[in-house]
Simulated assay, not measured.
Amino acid sequence: MQWKNITDLEEIGQIQQQEGYSLIFKHSTRCSVSLMAKKRFERDWAVIPENTALYFLDLISYRDISAQIAETFQVYHESPQILLIKNGDCILDASHSEISADEVAEMINS
């Protein structure tokens, strides 16, 4: 599995229009907690179904996109943060130590 970097505001609308599951990982490149959460998530992401689109946002470089994600999916901005999107709706958002590949997989497989 591989991340697709979000670098354009238009991509948020595209993610919202996708059918199925998409996951957005919002990462602060200046934060050691964010780095640890990302590494832990990547270590365990084999449990996530292959057809899940994985998106990565460097929120330091793309603050405007981070703000748009929060507005579009009606979540409070946090960092690090994951959002699980199903058919355009955020069905799970988690931050810091609550970020779990197992929880994402459980939501997808239920």
Score class of each variant (00 low, 15 high):
residue 83 L to A: 08
residue 18 Q to S: 11
residue 30 R to S: 10
residue 5 N to Y: 05
residue 7 T to W: 02
residue 42 E to M: 03
residue 105 A to C: 05
residue 7 T to N: 02
residue 74 Q to A: 11
residue 38 K to Y: 12
residue 69 I to V: 11
residue 44 D to Y: 13
residue 86 K to R: 10
residue 15 I to Y: 03
residue 10 E to V: 04
residue 20 G to V: 11
residue 29 T to K: 13
residue 27 H to M: 05
residue 39 K to M: 15
residue 12 I to H: 01
residue 42 E to H: 00
residue 40 R to H: 08
residue 75 V to Q: 08
residue 37 A to C: 10
residue 34 S to V: 01
residue 94 A to L: 15
residue 45 W to L: 04
residue 7 T to Q: 06
residue 56 F to K: 00
residue 76 Y to V: 06
residue 69 I to G: 00
residue 80 P to R: 05
residue 50 E to R: 08
residue 52 T to F: 05
residue 37 A to M: 11
residue 46 A to R: 10
residue 24 I to W: 04
residue 15 I to F: 08
residue 28 S to N: 12
residue 80 P to L: 07
residue 88 G to R: 05
residue 26 K to E: 10
residue 11 E to G: 07
residue 32 S to Y: 10
residue 38 K to C: 12
residue 98 E to P: 09
residue 30 R to T: 12
residue 51 N to D: 11
residue 46 A to H: 14
residue 5 N to S: 05
residue 105 A to K: 01
residue 26 K to W: 12
residue 26 K to S: 09
residue 81 Q to Y: 01
residue 62 Y to L: 01
residue 60 I to R: 12
residue 92 L to F: 11
residue 109 N to A: 06
residue 14 Q to W: 09
residue 6 I to H: 01
residue 46 A to T: 09
residue 76 Y to L: 10
residue 8 D to Q: 02
residue 82 I to N: 04
residue 72 T to F: 06
residue 6 I to L: 03
residue 87 N to D: 15
residue 98 E to D: 15
